[in-house]
Design a protein around this nucleic acid. Structure first.
Length: 440
RNA sequence: GCGGGGAUGGCCCAGUGGUACGGCGGUAGCCUGCUAAGCUAUUUCUCUAUGAGAGCGAGGGUUCGAAUCCCUCUCCCCGCGCCA
């Protein structure tokens, strides 16, 4: 939710932000018109209510003195019917006003590159030493701005799908029989690896002042709608039939909503949360993409970083979250690039977003494994999360970032650490897995 | 699932039909060698703001007037039942 007063005072900022995103200014203009009418109705209503309160109190006095007050009662009835009429009209205005307000996106950070489409996402940096098949050198160098270090592979590594099959780690066919496409049975040492990844990421964050939290895996419509946007509802969320409950698509949402309607002590800030949960996604907008294997699936585990802080500190924390996610990938020895999303690719909530894309040598591509966003005070305003300040209360800023999503990270490990048909386990995980190789 | 009790400002708590009492904490000021104490004001949201309106878990209803009475729903506590 945008700051309505800021919008009234300075619509230009919001129109500019909308236009950078490739939206029109219709929403802003339509909001301003509705808002004007809303305020004028509010004035009428308040004047009538004031009059009503005065008469009602006078009736109270008369009743005490046992005087007749039937004239006053009749007057209040008249006022009531006027109020009722305006209220009915106002309810419609207010409904449309909030619908339009919900469509206005967050203000974009000044440094976000103005552009549309993936191609305009800005390269920030590369880390690591990638294994690149001869045919993919051009793709690799282009996407790493010529800064990516690499060694050439003379043969393409096996796809994770074939490898899982050969090592009997994933059963997709039986999962399809039981649950449909994009589901899987995870087996043997790959399951152990998954658990190791989760434990490792939680420990990593606990060492950095994050409080580990397991949230509810289902949420009601009201908090969900405040924590996210309409796109997520349309494309990601599973609804429980006959109940007001949705399966979470990320722990970001229940964690954000955790502090809704609360006023925090500024001393408590920043609040760092390391959340772990399964994530359920319909992938409705992804027909035909990544249909094989466990790269894009309906359920996976994710360790998520979440921060509640003061708005003015949020930009430093965006860097902290990104640095943490990078440190995890570095410790797993996975080469990656960081990209800064262009204006047209941001969600309505995001003021700025970095993605981290690991190099997948079998696919010959960089693919998203981490997404780190600063939603400034936009999400907190919808959820009504404030902190106390000397001159009134302010909304907190909320930030979220993947620490580690299990399925994609496992695919990255399988593609990057293939060794003669076996999978080498990254060193930092060995204490958690208890083995250093996955083989047939 | 059944029965009983509950939800009031940041926190605690009073309030059986006349417009939310009191305390704690926070903030600002006064006072005082310092600190503490004490005193005063303030504390949520909205608006066209020296003023006004809304707000007592949510939504409806009755009434001139509802925290209070009635209905529906949500959540919490206690007991019973069921259960990994």
């Amino acid at each position: 939710m945008i700051d309505v007063r800021a919008l009234r005072e300075n619509p230009k900022n919001f129109i500019e932000s909308c236009e950078k995103r490739g939206f029109g200014k219709e929403e802003v203009e339509s909001f301003l018109a509705l808002d004007e009418e809303w305020r004028s109705n509010l004035k009428k209503l308040n004047d009538l209510r004031k009059r009503k309160n005065q008469i009602t109190q006078a009736i109270g006095e008369k009743v005490k003195l046992k005087q007749d007050s039937s004239g006053e009662k009749e007057e209040v009835r008249t006022i009531n019917s006027e109020i009722e009429a305006i209220e009915a009209w106002q309810a419609g205005i207010e409904g449309r006003r909030s619908e339009v307000a919900a469509l206005i996106p967050n203000l974009i950070h000044d440094k976000v590159f103005v552009g549309k489409g993936d191609d305009n996402n800005q390269f920030v940096r590369f880390w690591g030493r990638a294994r690149v098949f001869t045919d993919d050198v051009e793709e690799f160098s282009g996407k790493s701005n010529g800064k990516g270090k690499y060694e050439i592979l003379s043969t393409r590594p096996m796809s994770h799908v074939d490898l899982e099959d050969r090592l009997d780690l994933v059963d997709l066919e039986r999962a399809a029989k039981v649950s449909g496409a994009r589901f899987f049975y995870l087996k043997g040492r790959l399951l152990k690896l998954e658990q190791a990844l989760v434990s490792y990421a939680l420990d990593f964050l606990a060492d950095r002042a994050f409080v580990p939290v397991e949230p509810p895996f289902m949420m009601r419509y009201d908090p969900m709608s405040k924590a996210t946007d309409i796109e997520t509802f349309k494309e990601s969320l599973y609804k429980i039939e006959g109940e007001d409950l949705y399966l979470i698509s990320t722990s970001e949402h229940p964690i954000a909503a955790m502090l809704s309607d609360e006023i925090l002590d500024p001393e408590e800030l920043p609040i760092r949360v390391a959340a772990v949960s399964p994530c359920f996604r319909r992938e409705a907008g992804a027909h035909g993409k990544d249909t094989k294997g466990i790269f894009r699936v309906h359920q996976f585990f994710k360790v998520e970083q979440f921060i509640f802080c003061k708005n003015e500190d949020s930009w430093d924390f965006l860097e902290e979250l990104t640095a943490n996610a990078e440190a995890i990938l570095q410790s797993l020895e996975l080469p990656y690039r960081v990209i800064d999303f262009c204006s047209g690719e941001l969600s309505r909530l995001n003021a700025r977003k970095y993605d981290i894309e690991a190099w997948f040598p079998a696919q010959g591509k960089f693919r998203e494994v981490v997404s780190a966003s600063n939603n400034t005070d936009f999400q907190a305003r919808s959820l009504n999360i404030r902190y106390r300040e000397k001159n009134g209360n302010s909304f907190v800023a909320t930030l979220n970032s993947t620490a580690l999503a299990t399925t994609r990270t496992m695919v990255a490990i399988m593609e990057n650490f293939q060794d003669h048909g076996a999978i080498r386990v990254p060193k930092v995980l060995i204490p958690y897995t208890g083995f250093d190789t996955i083989f047939a």
